[in-house]
Design a binder for these strands. Structure first.
Lengths: 326, 326
DNA sequence: TTGAAAGCGATACCAT
DNA sequence: ATGGTATCGCTTTCAA
């Protein structure tokens, strides 16, 4: 059995209060006493129980983070940025993946009982759940999701980058643009589409249900039989990569005949030479951790809604570079 | 302030023991009483404190997982597989990334105090630390790391796949093979090299310090000036991808003139058409979670060292496929 | 500077 | 079927 604070107190001939003080040097203790306690603690290999400590302090010293998945670099990077800052702030990180879970909302509420605050990524739980959490006094920060009520949020800027991306295409002479995606499913995609529209009024919208490679590869077929546009502006990289493969298989010249862009800058985008928009994923997580800490410590009561800048990454699916085809 | 079990007891006119029974239906309670308690709990929006519960039960109901990083699909997938099973077993998951942390060992020990058991991925902490944890009675399972003392471990099989990979190259007529990597740094790489050697006695070893793309691209230079071998067997995908880019830039015919293989099957490997070996990452995590649960529940006391099968993935860096070049 | 004792919020044993 | 109460392992007044 592990030694408790009482064992140490007895061994050192002091009270448990003194042991507690020494273990956390929370108050002045006479050096001689301190040394005696330290020696006793060492001898007994005493390590304070976190359970006891947490109950007494009425805090978990842990934060949660909810994400849909860790496949792809997106959420993994956000989680890492979050964990790094949380660790610096002396907090552990609890994770919860909602992928393939039908009771996501319940799981999140259960998790909320095990930490001092949590970050929710994307559309993992319903708006109602988020509001219920907030109503119960939980400290919550949303990431990559539009604000819900007075709950804090951190998002990547979309519209400005979409404008820059579109302008880049126009500069290259592309006139007929097709935006591939579904603005109605995600506010993020809606923002991207809106940004594109601001610069190119005649952009067409090609609606797809799933934003994955299969969908991308599939929809290319429609265009091969009729006319190709000058550029496909995809809602994300997966879609773009799927289209790329299919277009190249059909021998279409890229970027000569048609240009393709994605969004996210996943690792594969680099190998595919895909022009895309990179989001500051690690910073999203780090910022969320800091906002959450303010909430927990009570140093801020007004809600905040941060927006972090993104970066246009130009590669050879829009311009012919000297970079080797890999 | 949140309601406690005492508030509910008072409201329902019963003792806290009865409230506890009702909340967890741990014992028979007369229906009328049960309903009264339920009503009181609802009225007060009572949710049992996990802190109180954990202290009383003397368990965290949480497991930890330590990993170097989440970049790249490898660890992310392991973590996901782990989280999925842990959740099924009713346990939360605490994470700890050691990347860019100089106090990794301390952090892991601190984490061990906050959970009932933990999984350690790769070489994130020293062998000494692992043994110290085990000595302190912590429940530990190692993943992607050779066994340390009597500590449980789960690893992906390496040698058999290395043999299959090598045989595949021989079948294609490749004779002069060069293994790129450093068998001395990682037992995993050593196993891979050993497997290759078993099939091809005359394989050469090209030693590199870093197993990343830069190193891969760099070492190609050495070979361009003198003779290329028939195949480069790289210790991992990063290395192989780096070499690929550089070889293609130099106009070398792949797989005609030289074949290239990697290891891990990262996402980019697919786009690069890289022949490689895929590890059952999600299963590694899931298996670790189950082993850990056995340890925690005490249903097993003998150490186990599991080895999961891997899969050879053949793509066009070794055989000319019909797959389009992307 | 130190100690006694009252929480923190549950669980669980022992009576009744 | 219920209640009283000790217990889990610590932190934190309040006195001395």
């Amino acid at each position: 059995m592990r030694a408790t604070i009482r064992d140490v107190a007895r061994e050192a001939g002091v009270s448990i209060a003194t042991v507690s003080r020494v273990m956390r040097d929370s108050a002045a203790v006479r050096p001689a006493t301190r040394d005696r306690v330290r020696a006793a603690a060492d001898a007994l290999e005493f390590v304070p129980s976190q359970l006891g400590r947490q109950l007494a302090e009425r805090r978990h010293a842990a934060n949660g983070i909810v994400f849909p998945d860790l496949s792809g670099p997106y959420y993994a990077e956000v989680v890492l940025g979050y964990e790094t800052v949380a660790a610096e702030l002396g907090r552990s990180v609890l994770i919860l993946s909602t992928r393939g879970r039908d009771d996501a909302d319940d799981a999140v509420h259960a998790m909320a009982e095990r930490c001092d605050g949590l970050v929710i990524l994307g559309r993992t739980v319903s708006d109602a759940s988020v509001e219920r959490l907030a109503a119960r006094g939980a400290n919550v920060v949303l990431v990559a999701r539009p604000p819900v009520g007075g709950v804090d949020s951190v998002n990547a800027e979309s519209r400005t980058s979409a404008r820059a991306l579109t302008q880049h295409l126009l500069d290259l002479g592309a006139r007929r643009l097709v935006f591939v995606g579904d603005p109605s499913t995600s506010p993020d995609v809606a923002e991207r589409f809106a940004g594109v529209q601001e610069v190119s009024q005649e952009v067409e919208l090609h609606h797809v249900d799933d934003l994955d490679e299969t969908a991308g590869a599939h929809l290319v077929g429609d265009y091969l039989t009729r006319a190709l546009p000058d550029a496909f502006v995809c809602a994300n990289d997966e879609l773009a990569l799927g289209m790329l493969g299919r277009l190249q298989a059909a021998g279409v010249d890229i970027p000569g005949r048609v240009k393709v862009t994605g969004w996210d800058d996943v690792m594969a985008a680099r190998y595919a030479g895909l022009t895309t928009v990179r989001q500051p994923m690690r910073e999203l997580g780090a910022t969320a951790a800091r906002l959450l800490d303010e909430l927990i410590s009570g140093s801020r009561t007004q809600p905040r809604h941060d927006e972090l800048p993104t970066e246009l990454v130009i590669r050879r699916t829009t311009t012919l570079g000297k970079e080797p085809l890999s």
